[in-house]
Amino acid sequence: MNAVGKNLKQLRQREKLTQDALAERLHVTRQAVSSWETGKTQPDIETLTTLAEALNADVRELIYGPGRIERPYARFQRRYIICTAVCVLVFLAWIVMELTLEPYLAELLGKGYIVWPIFVYGVTVSLFAYSAVGVFLPAVISLWGDIRLRSNRLRRTMAVLGLLFLSHYVLWASVLLLGNTWYPILRDWFYWLLNLPFARNGTLFLSGCLLFLSLNK
């Protein structure tokens, strides 16, 4: 298989097209497409241009290979619009609960009722709300500009950091739940660190940002 034939096959698979589907777009036979991919025949310049258009690719990608040519960044991509909308809905739900349910639960807590359900509620709501805000920021930026990380190593690093920040919050919740069973020094350190203004909810915000960047290819 020659280079053009190999590149043609990769581009066709990238677009999730069968040989029959591509042949239908080009108004040729499936055998012609198969012949190009196996290198038995070579498409001429005009056919290369038509192939590139049918595959939503650049002619240079057919010659040099997929991914070798930097493609223009498509603004307002559907996945970023959906991600932004979901984050906004989560944030609005959080505001509604803060204004309606939170005062009622605080009143019950002051009377000594249902302490642990209130705690679980607070931890869960904060987990989703602040993480959603962290995802929202890069998602909105991605509607206008390309902030994808090209390096797999860098994406893995962002994923590890995001999970570390997330585990930091989980440890804080564990300290509150099991505080009396932790070593006093370790328990006091977590109480001090995670009750700083930014430390507790800021870790969730950073976790959302970093995990978004690590998964955004």
Rank of each mutant, 00 (worst) to 15 (best):
N2D: 15
N2Y: 05
A3V: 15
V4E: 06
K6N: 14
K9R: 15
L11Y: 04
R12W: 03
R12K: 08
Q13V: 08
R14K: 10
E15L: 09
E15M: 09
Q19K: 11
E24F: 11
E24Q: 15
L26C: 11
L26K: 04
S35L: 01
W36H: 06
T38C: 14
T38S: 14
T38L: 11
P43D: 02
T50F: 04
A54Q: 02
A54S: 11
L62W: 03
I63L: 13
G67I: 13
R68A: 11
R68V: 15
E70T: 14
R71C: 03
R75H: 14
F76G: 06
C83L: 14
A85F: 12
F91V: 05
F91I: 10
W94K: 05
V96F: 04
V96K: 00
L101C: 00
E102W: 04
P103H: 02
A106C: 00
A106L: 08
L109G: 08
K111M: 03
Y113Q: 13
P117I: 07
I118A: 11
I118W: 10
F119W: 08
V120Y: 13
V120G: 01
G122P: 02
T124D: 02
S126G: 12
S126C: 13
L127T: 13
S131R: 05
S131D: 03
A132D: 06
V135R: 11
F136N: 03
L137T: 13
I147S: 04
T157K: 07
V160I: 15
H168A: 14
V170L: 14
L171W: 08
V175E: 07
Y183S: 12
Y183V: 10
I185V: 15
R187V: 02
W189K: 01
Y191L: 09
W192T: 13
L193C: 04
L194G: 07
N195L: 01
N195W: 04
A199T: 15
L204Y: 09
F205E: 03
S207T: 09
G208S: 11
G208F: 09
L213T: 05
S214M: 09
S214Y: 07
K217F: 10
